[in-house]
């Protein structure tokens, strides 16, 4: 898109979630009891879902906004739309 970039922020969010999950996998090797299970079940699993929902929302948002942009740009402004 020419007038907004939603994907960079979404990619950043996705990447930070991935980093957090990797950190958790490493931690789990050293910590495995009812409290660590609680960290996973009550925090990390919901956080993962929340981020996934957010990324889906941003994808949809980008789709609609790209169409809006294409429809409202003049040919001479258009150029290559990403």
């Amino acid at each position: 898109m020419k007038n907004a970039d939603f994907m960079s922020a979404a990619a950043r969010l996705a990447d930070s979630m991935k980093q957090l999950e990797m950190a958790w996998m490493a931690t789990k090797e050293e910590w495995s009891d009812s409290v660590s299970q609680r960290v996973e079940d009550e925090y990390l699993v919901p956080m993962h879902s929340q981020v996934q929902v957010m990324l889906d929302t941003v994808n949809k948002l980008t789709g609609v906004m790209s169409k809006a942009e294409r429809a409202c740009l003049h040919n001479r402004e258009a150029g290559p739309i990403l």
């Binding site: 950190a23 958790w24 490493a26 931690t27 050293e30 910590w31 009891d33 009812s34 660590s36």
Partner: peptide, 14 residues
């Protein structure tokens, strides 16, 4: 229940 934490640093890193 007994705790099973082999490294405090692992928790700190997390």
């Amino acid at each position: 229940e007994s705790a099973n934490v082999r490294s405090i640093d692992a928790v700190k890193n997390f």
